[in-house]
């Protein structure tokens, strides 16, 4: 369904040029969940932002069902592909009620039956209907992230781009949001691309995972082989080991991979 070929993203030019993504290619099948993991600066979020065309500094081809995307965002693609951001505090308008937030995409796309769709979206993400006219500061972090997911789903897209959707949340709330994402994908047959620094979170949601370092794919593997700790690459092995809790010996032996 999604084909990315030879994606490069470069910011700035001359001596301050930053090559954030350097030649990335991958495909995601219809209904599949694909994960991008890596440390900060690895380019994982930039790949997602290029697909969402939140940056236009990219070259290469991004195809959805065979149609190449242009550098400009267009309504037709927006209806098919929506994004959920990391920070539910920053991604919701503080002066808009939940209702305003969910209504805006419907207005932009000229879609009817607002009441029915807004109530449906609230039910879908497990938010009480009594929260409909609250402001973001009146609800919890987990509820805000549910609003952000409801906003993404209200256009009935086929693809969700998830950028660290649970890393700002407490683990008990994270579990609720992860369960929600699993359920929504089954219920609506969604395709996910998810970015996270947390290997366990990505392995929980996705079937296939690409490990990124310095703008490149280090390796692409199934969630099962990530879980059984059989990756072949030294960088991936170090990342898995460092995710497993504090180990004095391991801390001494950490190397930087260029």
């Amino acid at each position: 369904m999604i084909h990315v070929e030879d994606l490069f993203v470069t910011f700035g030019h001359g001596p301050t040029e930053v090559r954030a993504v350097r030649g990335v290619s991958f495909s995601v099948a219809h209904g599949e969940a694909f994960g991008l993991v890596g440390e900060s600066g690895s380019g994982k979020s930039t790949v997602l932002r290029a697909i969402a065309r939140l940056t236009n500094a990219w070259t290469g081809t991004i195809r959805i069902d065979g149609t190449a995307l242009s550098h400009r965002r267009d309504r037709a693609t927006a209806r098919r592909m929506q994004m959920v951001f990391q920070d539910p505090y920053g991604s919701l308008h503080p002066r808009h009620t939940v209702n305003d937030i969910l209504q805006e995409p419907l207005q932009i796309h000229g879609i009817d039956r607002h009441d029915e769709r807004i109530l449906g979206a609230l039910d879908d993400v497990g938010l009480g209907r009594e929260l409909r006219f609250r402001y973001p500061h009146q609800i919890s972090g987990g509820q805000r992230q549910r609003v952000a997911i409801a906003r993404a789903l209200i256009l009935e897209p086929e693809i969700l781009l998830l950028d660290e959707p649970t890393s700002a949340l407490d683990v008990s709330v994270q579990a609720e949001i992860l369960n929600l994402l699993v359920r929504l994908r089954q219920a609506h047959g969604l395709t996910y691309i998810m970015v996270s620094h947390n290997l366990a979170v990505v392995a929980h949601i996705c079937e296939r995972v690409a490990v990124m370092n310095r703008g490149r794919f280090v390796e692409e593997l199934t969630a099962d082989s990530l879980r059984s700790a059989t990756p072949t690459d030294a960088y991936t092995r170090q990342l898995i080991a460092a995710s497993g809790g504090y180990d004095r010996e391991l801390a001494r032996g950490i190397v930087t991979y260029e």
Partner: peptide, 20 residues
């Protein structure tokens, strides 16, 4: 115990995470 259970773990997969 509830906190520990709701953290997804790399070494074993659960379809649904227990909620605290």
């Amino acid at each position: 115990r509830g906190l520990l259970n709701c953290i997804p773990e790399l070494d074993h997969h659960q379809d649904v995470l227990p909620v605290l």
